[in-house]
């Protein structure tokens, strides 16, 4: 017998044949089995509202990650209040670029993951850490692409591993993953990565970099992205997760509504051509 209560009291298929869902006009029941739709099944073929780069870097005792608050509809700046950094558990940040509706779906499944792992009967067990979150997301992303129904995003997971070392790993709509000491998505991989790799040439070099240095390069990168990425915004959020070496505790700092500082526009007055009306 089928133990789902919604099936109780139904005549059995073996004896009476398939249940006729049109009885009592019960059209809403079991629609997923009926497949009488006039339309073929459609999956995402392109993103609609998009968020641009997420950039991130490790430093000696922590990690910093930043993303602006713009949601673009093609070349239209449709929203400027989208938070693209998601906190998961107590010491992990997930930064998402790409489709915003898929971002919101990911936000939802991560909240469900957090509740299942941390709220339900956590009888002194483990709490969610960044490698767990990344593994989960990479399984979701790869499964979705394998069903030809991708979540149109590039994602950076930042936090600490079980040995309290900084953890930074990427996953995208194809399920491709990689690790590095500096990761950026979208335009950031062209514009921010050179600046970040200048600070941290090799993966292991992040231990020679302190929080201030990393933060400065992230700020510089956000400025460069604002200058040159037409889909970027002036206001961004950034998060710092650091291990306080004295207390051994992990500290979490989430800054919203940060503005791109030190912009220099003096060159603008000298611009000729390109539609400029100056002579």
């Amino acid at each position: 017998m089928n133990h789902d209560p919604y099936y109780w009291g139904r005549p059995s298929d073996e004896v009476y044949g398939q249940y006729n869902y049109n009885i009592a006009n019960a059209k809403n029941v079991e629609q997923h089995n009926q497949n009488n739709s006039n339309f073929p099944k459609m999956n995402t073929q392109q993103p609609i509202i998009t968020g641009t780069s997420v950039i991130s870097s490790k430093f000696k005792n922590g990690i910093i990650i930043a993303a602006d608050n713009v949601g673009s509809y093609g070349s239209l700046m449709r929203f400027n209040n989208i938070e693209r950094l998601i906190k998961v558990g107590s010491q992990t940040i997930v930064g998402i670029s790409g489709d915003i509706s898929d971002l919101q779906y990911i936000q939802r499944i991560l909240d469900e993951l957090e509740i299942q792992q941390e709220v339900y009967d956590n009888d002194g067990g483990d709490f969610l850490i960044a490698p767990n979150v990344h593994e989960y997301l990479s399984r979701v992303m790869y499964n979705r692409r394998s069903n030809m129904n991708p979540l149109w995003n590039s994602i950076i997971v930042a936090g600490f591993d079980s040995e309290k070392k900084p953890f930074l790993r990427y996953v995208d709509l194809l399920g491709v993953t990689y690790h590095a000491s500096t990761i950026a998505t979208g335009f950031g991989s062209h514009l921010a990565i050179p600046l970040l790799r200048n600070l941290i040439p090799e993966n292991k070099d992040y231990i020679n970099v302190n929080e201030e240095q990393a933060k400065k390069v992230i700020e510089d990168s956000m400025r460069v992205l604002f200058y040159r990425d037409a889909r970027s915004g002036e206001v961004y959020s950034y998060a710092v997760i650091r291990l306080n070496e004295e207390t051994g505790k992990i500290e979490f700092e989430f800054n919203k509504k940060t503005k791109v500082e030190d912009q220099k526009w003096r060159f603008a007055k000298d611009i000729r051509g390109y539609g400029s009306t100056q002579h």
Binding site: V176, Y178, H179, A180, S189, H190, I193, E202, N203
Partner: peptide
């Protein structure tokens, strides 16, 4: 090396 297009994603994967 792991790359995507002309970008190097990671130098050690």
């Amino acid at each position: 090396r792991q790359s995507e297009g002309y970008s190097i994603q990671s130098r050690y994967e």
